[in-house]
Design a protein around this nucleic acid. Sequence first.
DNA 1: CTGGGGTGCGACAATTTGCCACATGTTCAA
DNA 2: TTGAACATGTGGCAAATTGTCGCACCCCAG
Lengths: 169, 169
Amino acid sequence: MKILLIDDDSVFRETLGRSLRKRGHEVAGAESQEAVACCRHFQPESILLDLKMPGESGLALLPQLAEIVPGARIVMLTGYGSIATALEAVRTGAHDYLTKPADADQIEAALSGRARNAGIAVPSLDRVEWEHLQRTLADCGNNISRTARLLGIDRRSLQRKLAKYPPPR
Amino acid sequence: MKILLIDDDSVFRETLGRSLRKRGHEVAGAESQEAVACCRHFQPESILLDLKMPGESGLALLPQLAEIVPGARIVMLTGYGSIATALEAVRTGAHDYLTKPADADQIEAALSGRARNAGIAVPSLDRVEWEHLQRTLADCGNNISRTARLLGIDRRSLQRKLAKYPPPR
DNA sequence: CTGGGGTGCGACAATTTGCCACATGTTCAA
DNA sequence: TTGAACATGTGGCAAATTGTCGCACCCCAG
């Protein structure tokens, strides 16, 4: 399968690209800038599109890509998910939506359009907390003080949480 | 606008129905059982469908309703929200997806297809924890031990949380 | 330059958790 | 009927987390 990875993080593109090639796919990578051109040349069957990128938002890119390769399966990827953005993505034309961290298996499944996740695993309490926290933090433009106020916890506590989880991921 | 409310909670149907009628809509309500038949007779333009119902899941009902009234706008409603279920709903044919608690304004907006969004109050961390906890607990048939295991916390801690929050709320 | 915000961090008391134990219930199958 | 397996309610305690203050430093509009 011809897959195009669009993400401004080159390390991520490389890592994921390697994994997908091992599985027998033909992979190309691109930053948001080159995305449109690259898509035109490469004519991928599947596209993995990062939602949050410095330059143009993945959401803006989506319609353009869909026009260039109408048959391609487009999957949005984002660091933290919210239902609102997921719906937004799907409405705009995405076929699926994933949140990081997503392993190569999940990504491949989504790109293939294979049904995944029959059983919706119940996330742990910590997991839920972490996701909500990340989402809110992003909404606040990484403003820790404001985030803490919104979440109703002390800034110090937020700092500690942030300092603790990140490493293990 | 002709609106059909499908939810097994009659109180909820009544309350919401009243609000929507005040806004000048023609509203009918139905339980999951009667949903299909009711839909056939009423021929609504919009349908609000509860995702989680005792009998048949809203998800199962969705395709049937869509067939009966192809032009209707179908909005899923659920007590908790997860990206996975939201996508599932949209993939199955829903036009939008809301999570309780949703006020009449939000619901009306969604049913009308108007862009809503804008001010989605950020829930506090405690609030998120509480909701996820309640939802999981319900999934486990109020089995505290199992819930605690799923959530990755100690049974004792869960008990204490349950004992603490309820009163104020 | 000054005040208002934001960030990072140390310290300490107040809470909350994790964990074990024990006494009852319930349920199901031998 | 009896026993094993599992659920629930509680008590107790050490360990971990949180809430709060305080202080130093940055940055930026006034």
